[in-house]
Design a protein around this nucleic acid. Structure first.
Lengths: 153, 153
DNA sequence: CTGATTTTGGTACTTTAGTATGAAGGGTTT
DNA sequence: AAACCCTTCATACTAAAGTACCAAAATCAG
């Protein structure tokens, strides 16, 4: 978890504080007098579950533009992700055997962009061809099994 | 184990018979009187170990030209091998990320031959690109882990 | 020996991949 | 605001991959 982000943390704190205030308002003005304790607890559970999901989503896709939604495992594990999000997508589609044109059609980007990503991938992996990139990514554990690629179909 | 081979079996029998005769000769004319029993047993062990190695090698590379030395698992498992020996070698080197030229240099064949093998591989696997061939071979279990490819290095 | 398959090699051609270089907008960090 | 990275797109070029078609020698089962 390098590159600590301050902004999101502030946002998380603010949202948490607002939620707590909201809970207090509900508690004292309406809920305890109107509904049962079960519903009150259920609401708390739901809200905080949603908050947790949202926080988790934010953590994972924190660097949505500058980071990696697909590298969540690496991020959670505390590793610095070598490839960016888009590069990971391109690499996985590469490993499925798609051509640059097909990758572009799949990701709604031009073939030129795919080539740019390819060149960057090769540079980062220290290889010169896409087949080498696939092999290298497998040995490095970037591409593990079939699940990752299946999830994109 | 389709395609029963008669010739090799006859050869195995002949070699076995010759070896037994040879053992008898050694046993009765020289060894027992001249050397200790240990050396005699050691010779037997060595010879039959060599025979076993040779037989194993022959079984594995039985279809060396018309078959698959690298498809031994599939053959032993009773499956009909889809790809030929050479095609398997080319496919594995492909999966390692080698170019056609590099594959040719590794196998001491011309790049034209590599291309011919490639086209045949793609045709047999029902794909159009080498990256697709690698992916397809993985899903089909033709390429399993890293051991197979490592053994070629 | 014959037929089938493998392996090897080639030419000519089209398609795809990859490189070099530039550019522009957006988001993050400091 | 400046520096940095990501993402997108583009052109022009070279290299590699792939296709179609052919051909010949070697191996092997029957």
């Amino acid at each position: 978890m390098q590159r600590l982000v301050l902004k999101p943390l502030i946002w998380y704190g603010l949202v948490l504080a607002l939620l707590l205030i909201f809970m207090r308002l509900i508690e004292y003005r309406y809920l305890v007098k109107t509904f049962s304790v079960d519903i009150y607890l259920g609401g708390i559970a739901l809200l905080f579950t949603s908050l947790g999901i949202w926080i988790g989503y934010q953590i994972i896709t924190r660097n949505s533009r500058a980071g990696n939604s697909l590298n969540e495992m690496a991020l959670i594990a505390g590793e610095e992700s070598l490839l960016s999000d888009r590069e990971m997508e391109v690499l996985l589609l590469m490993a499925e055997g798609l051509s640059n044109r097909e990758i572009g059609e799949r990701l709604y980007i031009s073939i030129h962009t795919v080539k740019t990503h390819s060149t960057n991938i090769f540079s980062k992996l220290g290889v010169k061809r896409r087949t080498q990139a696939i092999s290298q990514a497998r040995t490095m554990g970037i591409i593990k099994a079939k699940q990752e690629s299946e999830s994109l179909k």
